[in-house]
Design a protein around this nucleic acid. Structure first.
Lengths: 166, 166
DNA sequence: GTAATTGCAAATCATTTGCTTCGTA
DNA sequence: TACGAAGCAAATGATTTGCAATTAC
């Protein structure tokens, strides 16, 4: 958490996220936020937590880990609920369709995105990540490195709107 | 580019990206990388460049800007080619399906992703972005702020493979 | 003239919803 | 027992491909 060594394949420091206790805590949080302790829920959480990397819905549904082969629709609904409860994070711009931007040479853009209404504001920040890029390129052997940085949150307008339900 | 003021709605500093010269330069690069100067190409580049924010394929295809209403398939192929030439950036994990990760409290994960094979490596970097979050939250009025940071590049294995074609 | 590009239609694939049955609280 | 969850099937929606007609070089 505080080691200065910035770049390592995620070996140790996140291992703790995948141990039984952390997973159990997640399940407990899930239950307390209203979800029932079903086998499918337990399986989905285990699969995702132990993967330690982003998985698609199909990945989760196809995983033969744990004996229940879950229906994609079930997995989908579980993922949706877990995301609504804040226990799960869906990567990307949170829209169903892919998004594109022109790549002007030398220009780089970061975004601020509302998790409810999906509005996207370009940010004119001095991106603090650039210096990391060369370091990562060097240590990982990747070429042509670039990055994407997005901030997500509830925009002021959406904060003012009543939550439809929980 | 060097102003210390870090957060502004992208007003000026990227405006230059959208002027005629920059767009013309993009089109020129496109032509030099083998694309023909068709109306659809010009329109797509104009639409994306002038939008200054991420657009979906449907956004581009539906844009009545410039007189040619382009077929989604045509737009799709243009976007694909522009991306292959490095003139365009597709946001997100570059997979067709959405990806999910468990949100362990207090843990945050950044990724290194190969643009060719799609492999995803979790990075154990000390993320330099966290300090920005509170600043952005304050200035934007967004609540519940979090961020995603992904690095993209060609992984060593893919670098070794012959490019199928250009 | 030749090869890339377009447009239209159709195929794919991931996501999402309806509805009935099942299982947890 | 009541209400959320699961399973199955079907609808939706974005993306992707096939192919004939067109257009840029």
């Amino acid at each position: 958490m505080s080691a200065p060594n910035p770049i390592q394949p995620c070996g140790q420091s996140h291992q703790d996220c995948r141990n039984k206790d952390a997973i159990e805590a997640l399940l407990e949080r899930a239950r307390q936020s209203g979800l029932r302790r079903t086998r499918a829920l337990r399986d989905v959480v285990h699969i995702l937590a132990e993967a330690g990397r982003p998985l698609t819905l199909a990945d989760v549904a196809a995983s033969r880990r744990l004996e229940s082969r879950a229906d994609p629709a079930t997995v989908y609904r579980l993922l949706t609920k877990l995301e609504q409860k804040g226990l799960l994070r869906r990567l990307g711009l949170h829209q169903r369709a892919a998004s594109y931007v022109m790549a002007f040479p030398g220009s780089h853009q970061d975004y601020l995105i509302c998790t409810r209404c999906g509005s996207i504001e370009p940010l004119d920040i001095r991106c603090p990540v650039e210096s990391l890029e060369s370091l990562i390129a060097e240590q990982s052997g990747y070429s042509g490195l670039y990055h994407e940085l997005e901030f997500f949150g509830l925009c002021p307008r959406c904060q003012a709107i009543q939550h439809p339900a929980s």
